[in-house]
């Protein structure tokens, strides 16, 4: 299988789907002549032209809103918000409109929009540019909130997102763009709203997604060297949330650690743990542990910032507390 970076995988998904479907166009800040602030759309402007690769003003409300409106009108826009942090500016459009128009008008309107936004910390961008607010968006019924952690999933999920009719928030991780991984040759999709076991194991279940998949896989290999076999489950999608593989795994391992990059309070760990307690109480051999970002706004200083973000060592420590 060919090796691609996460950036190349996303770029290929967009390119191939645009070639296949003339309804798809891109709009966003610096995606055209500049080529994308994370270079995902480099070369698109020259190939597809300004009608299909639209540079917008820096105005997230109308970027998201016009994309939603164009989707209502039958197009398939992909709006890029430069970072997920700026999606707060477009919050009303995403959660009050994209997520609700189909329901609120009794099925009359469809909103097949994909809003792409990179998120995550670790790049010394300060508190307002480094957040992982995925759960906030995942709170809202009506949206798909996707957050792939590998190049294969990124490409396959983005292609799947562009072939269905629900609004999608596609959250990329800004520090994964250089990550390499195997990607199937040719056309393929990855089903949306399906978790996947990324590493089988029998001693403990690690539940994670996005960048923290990388951290968790690293922790799992180190644990294996010590004789602890962790099963790593990648959620890939926060809404819809597929916990069946988690319950299945937990019934075997009886222990779980949930790893997320965002803050612990009201987070992915809280949700997954609560549902696991509800569904698998009789299988519980230890308290479910959560690994998450410490609860401060992320600082600029490199050492301080890194100390606030979850590391493989934190995952290993949590696992050892439960096995």
């Amino acid at each position: 299988m060919p090796q691609l970076t996460y950036r190349e995988a996303i770029s290929q998904a967009l390119w191939e789907e645009m070639e296949a479907n003339p309804k798809i166009f891109l709009m966003g800040e610096e995606i055209g002549m500049w080529g994308g602030t994370y270079a995902v759309t480099r070369g698109f402007y020259d190939h597809f032209g300004p009608e299909r690769v639209k540079d917008t003003p820096i105005a997230e409300m109308v970027i998201a809103g016009a994309a939603i409106g164009a989707a209502m009108g039958g197009a398939r826009p992909v709006a890029e918000i430069m970072t997920i942090n700026f999606a707060f500016v477009a919050f009303d459009m995403i959660v009050n409109h994209a997520a609700k128009l189909h329901y609120m008008f009794g099925g009359q309107m469809k909103v097949p929009v994909v809003i792409r936004a990179p998120g995550g910390g670790g790049r010394q961008l300060g508190a307002t540019h480094s957040q992982t607010p995925d759960v906030i968006f995942a709170h809202f019924p009506g949206l798909y909130v996707l957050a792939p952690g590998t190049p294969r999933d990124a490409k396959g999920m983005l292609k799947a997102a562009l072939r269905q009719d629900n609004p999608v928030l596609f959250i990329e991780h800004a520090t994964l763009y250089q990550a390499r991984g195997e990607v199937p040759a040719g056309d393929y999709t990855v089903p949306l709203g399906k978790s996947e076991v990324k590493r089988p194991g029998k001693d403990v279940t690690i539940v994670t997604y996005s960048k923290m998949l990388q951290i968790s896989m690293e922790a799992a290999s180190q644990l294996a060297a010590e004789g602890i076999e962790a099963e790593v489950i990648d959620l890939r999608s926060l809404r819809p949330l597929d916990l069946d593989p988690v319950f299945e795994s937990f019934k075997k391992t009886n222990r779980a650690v949930i790893v997320e990059e965002g803050w612990k309070s009201f987070g992915v760990g809280a949700e997954v743990a609560a549902r696991t307690y509800e569904e698998c109480f009789d299988y519980l051999d230890a308290p479910i542990k959560r690994v998450a970002q410490i609860e401060v706004p992320l600082p600029y200083n490199r050492e301080l910032e890194q100390s606030a973000l979850p590391k493989a060592a934190d995952v290993i420590r949590a696992v050892k507390e439960v096995v």
Binding site: I68, A70, M72
Partner: peptide
Amino acid sequence: GGHAIVGAHLPLAAGLALSFQY
């Protein structure tokens, strides 16, 4: 529609117009 967040249907209108133009 029929939109109840003040001003929020303006970007939707821009988007619908964009779909016609596209």
